[in-house]
């Protein structure tokens, strides 16, 4: 069951499968079971809304970047980053790059079921070509730059000039960059990474993230404009008949 909870079904679509159009591809059983569940239709629509709100559609043609972070680990920032990227690729019809910057806990390669060919840490610490590191995912128009080999001390790499130059390079190549940033309260380098983005989306997990932690995370982010908060892992707590009895919408209180 833990495996099921940890997967991000919208990240594992395969070739021949178009994200947002066909949710029941005749591919792997996991994907089929996951994608045919009605919940993913809801998830897809939610991410489309979120992407529309946090990305500037009027700026189509110009590059824009959004950092996705959270206060602590396990609040779903990587899931939300993937969801926003997939929805943005669908909404805007442009190439979207997911930049994984959490060098302590890299996992997007696994989520996308991709082979490791080097990543951000490898690029910043060696002469490997960035084109080698960036890989297409099975989601159309979504590309991934993984964080690379786990690094115990990513600070010098993140603060290096090479990283800033890389960001400029990426902006030239991709119209939308979603930065999957480390948690703001637990990573000392998160603020530096977030500053590389034009705006920040804070992910909070419903029932887990405390208000004060969210406020502290926003303080830690510094002066980066905050687009808003994505409340992840919400649940519809009330049975339908109770909601009708109380005169409230079930989805209003999810």
């Amino acid at each position: 069951m833990a495996t099921m909870l940890n997967i991000r079904p919208w990240a594992v679509a395969r070739e021949g499968y178009e994200w947002g159009v066909n949710w029941s591809p005749a591919v792997g059983a996991v994907e089929e079971a996951a994608m045919t569940a009605p919940i993913f239709g809801v998830v897809e629509e939610r991410f489309k809304q979120i992407a529309a709100r946090c990305l500037d559609a009027a700026r189509a043609g110009a590059s824009q970047s959004v950092a996705v972070s959270s206060a602590a680990v396990g609040e779903g920032k990587s899931s939300v980053a993937i969801g926003i990227a997939a929805a943005a690729a669908r909404n805007l019809g442009t190439d979207v790059l997911i930049l994984e910057t959490d060098m302590l806990r890299p996992r997007l390669l696994e989520d996308f079921r991709l082979e490791g060919r080097g990543g951000l840490s490898d690029y910043l610490s060696s002469d490997i070509a960035i084109e080698t590191c960036i890989q297409p995912t099975r989601i159309p128009n979504v590309w991934l730059l993984p964080s690379g080999r786990p690094t115990a001390n990513p600070g010098p790499l993140i603060r290096s000039r090479r990283f800033q130059e890389l960001m400029a390079t990426l902006h030239e190549g991709y119209q939308t960059i979603i930065i999957d940033a480390p948690p703001l309260l637990t990573s000392p380098h998160a603020a530096v990474i977030v500053k590389q983005a034009e705006s920040l989306v804070l992910v909070a997990r419903a029932g887990q993230t405390h208000i004060q932690d969210a406020a502290n995370a926003l303080k830690a982010a510094g002066e980066v404009p905050v687009r808003g908060v994505v409340l992840n892992g919400t649940r519809v707590w009330l049975p339908g008949w109770v909601a009708r009895l109380l005169g409230v919408s079930r989805f209003a209180i999810e």
Partner: peptide, 22 residues
């Protein structure tokens, strides 16, 4: 903890972009 959009009122100026169901 943050459970509903109302809870975000404690963080002035912050808007809810959306919710993702569990």
């Amino acid at each position: 903890s943050i459970r509903v959009a109302e809870d975000l009122q404690a963080l002035p100026g912050l808007i809810l972009l959306g919710t993702v169901p569990d």
